[in-house]
Every structure is written in C-alpha cells, then in structure tokens.
C-alpha cells in the first residue's frame, strides 16, 4: 500500500512530526545552538573571555596544528576510544548473563551500576594509588612471581594510557550492561528460549540472536560512549595521570579545560580546539550511523 506524499493521511503525520520537535528545537536553539554559534565565531578571534575580541582569521587553528602538541592530544583521545569496544563487549556479556538469570543476578544487577554514582575524583584517586609504584597492582604482581614486570605504570606513555583505558572501561561496564539490558527487553521470549533449546552456545546466543536484534541500542551505546570519551573524561585523567608524563596522556578535552582555566586564558584558542573536536566527533558519528543503518536494514 503506497501512500502518495500529498495524501491527507501523510500530511497530518508530517504536521504532527514538526509540532513534536518544536519544543526541543526551541530549547536547543537558545541553550545549545546559540552558544555554539557564538563559540564558532569566537574561535576566529583572540577573545580573552572579556572584551578583547579581534578577528584573527585562522590564526588559532594554525597555532593548534603547528605550535601545540595537538597530534599527541589527538592520539591520546583516539587511544582512549579503545575503551568503547571493550566496555561494550564486556557490558554485552554481562547483560546476557543477567538476562539469563545467572546465579546471584539480582545482586550483581544492583552493584554493577555503582561506579556511576561515585565521583570521578574518588575513583581517580583510587586508581592512582592502585597503579602506583608501591601500589596494590605491583604488590600482586610480586606475589604471583611476576615481580620483574612491576613498574611505574603511570610514568610511561603506553602503560599510563592503558591504565586510563582500563579505568574508563571499568567505570562504564555497568552503564553499558544496563543499556543493553534495556534494549534486550524487546526480544520475544520464545525466540530466545527456542535458541537455547536448539543447543545454541552462549556465544551463538549472544552474537547470532541478541546482537542483530539490538543494533539500534548498540548504536546508541557506541555514540554515547564515544562522545563521552571525547568530551567528558578530563576529571578522570586529572586525578589519575594529570595528563602526564609531559603531555603524553593529555586529551583534547583536557587541553580545552586547561586553556579555559589558565591565567590570561586564550579563549579563542580553546574554542578553536573545541570546534575541531566537534568536527572529529561529527565524522565518527556519521560513519557510525551509516554503518548501523546498513546493519539494521533487514530489521
């Protein structure tokens, strides 16, 4: 049954659609788009956060690419992105186990979300201590006869980044598990039971039955955790490595934060960095959406 685009039936639907998004558009226009547009404009100025506001063209952007550790920052942001697939896969397994009501599932389901409730400052401090030179992690290594691998984990580029990836993953597993559980509620029970009766293994059930049915949920999980990793992890980095050694674990959002808070801040530079970050995330999101649209075509 094909309905012409001009049929009254379709038109009502479109009007409903437009009216439905009006409130959101009004809020976002003032609260997000206007400040965003103003920030994009400021990124072409030497704005000091106050009255100095002269047009400098592309100077801030040129400075970022030539005179700042931008490529290190970008590398670090991309490395931290590794935590996204890790947390989603672990979160997925846990969600499936909880769904199948593994022994103690009620207890686990309550505790799994706890890290989200505790402040990043406390979590960061505990990670800093845990991976300190004399911290529990090295003590455990020594106890299990791997003493030769003990080291200053936060003092070297790649091990410090690995600790950060570990921390972000640990922090987000519960969030992912709950999101995926939410997506799994729509799987018809009989489909799942039938697969189990047919003798499908845990991995078959997870990847052949569940994953195809929660593509949209996974899309949401990927975009959200990607955006979060790009824009909101500086509190963890500040507490764990302080962006060091040197700039080796400083990310783009951490740098934006630093530039905003230094005395005599160059807000033009900081906003230009934010605009670049916006473009990077935009590219990732569009690619991701294309990918899931293709994956869910047969839905």
């Amino acid at each position: 049954m094909k309905i012409s685009a001009f049929s009254p039936f379709h038109k009502t639907k479109a009007i409903h659609g437009i009216l439905s998004i009006v409130p959101v558009m009004v809020v976002l226009l003032f609260i997000r788009l206007y400040p965003l547009a103003s920030s994009i404009y400021r990124s072409f100025t030497n704005w000091d956060g106050l009255y100095r506001n002269d047009w400098v063209g592309l100077k801030n952007y040129i400075n970022i690419f030539t005179d700042s550790p931008f490529w290190t920052l970008l590398r670090n942001s991309l490395v931290l992105l590794l935590s996204v697939p890790l947390q989603i896969i672990i979160g997925l397994f846990i969600a499936v186990l909880l769904y199948e009501e593994v022994k103690g599932w009620r207890f686990f389901r309550t505790l799994i979300y706890l890290p989200q409730i505790v402040s990043a400052v406390t979590i960061g401090y505990l990670f800093r201590i845990a991976f300190g030179l004399e911290g529990p992690f090295n003590i455990i290594l020594q106890a299990i006869n791997l003493g030769k691998y003990t080291m200053e984990w936060l003092g070297n580029t790649w091990t410090a980044l690995a600790v950060l990836v570990f921390c972000l993953t640990w922090f987000s597993i519960g969030w992912q598990a709950i999101v995926i559980l939410g997506g799994m509620t729509r799987i018809p029970l009989d489909v799942f039971e039938a697969a189990k009766l047919d003798g499908a293994t845990f991995f078959q059930r997870t990847f052949l039955i569940i994953v195809p049915m929660i593509v949209r949920t996974l899309e949401y999980a990927v975009i959200m955790s990607m955006v979060w990793t790009f824009t909101s992890v500086f509190a963890f980095i500040f507490a764990i490595t302080n962006g060091g050694p040197g700039y080796e674990t400083t990310t783009i959002d951490y740098m934006i934060y630093t530039k905003f808070y230094q005395a005599g801040s160059n807000f033009g530079f900081a906003t230009a960095l934010a605009v670049i970050l916006l473009l990077i995330i935009m590219v990732f999101t569009v690619i991701e959406m294309r990918f899931t649209s293709a994956a869910s075509d047969w839905e």
Binding site: V24, M25, L28, R32, L33, Y34, P35, L36, S38, S39, G49, I223, V227, F230, T231, S232, D253, I256, Y257, F260, F267, A270, T271, A274, L277, L278, I281, M282, T285, V286, M289
Partner: peptide, 17 residues
C-alpha cells in the same frame, strides 16, 4: 543529526554566552 551534534561540545565552552 543537528540535534545530536550539539552533544559534541564540552559544556565549559558554552557557559559564558
């Protein structure tokens, strides 16, 4: 996409306006 992309900017950047 426009609505979603407003998430991509840290809140510190927009607080002054």
């Amino acid at each position: 996409l426009l609505i979603i992309s407003t998430m991509f900017i840290p809140v510190q950047v927009t607080i002054i306006p």
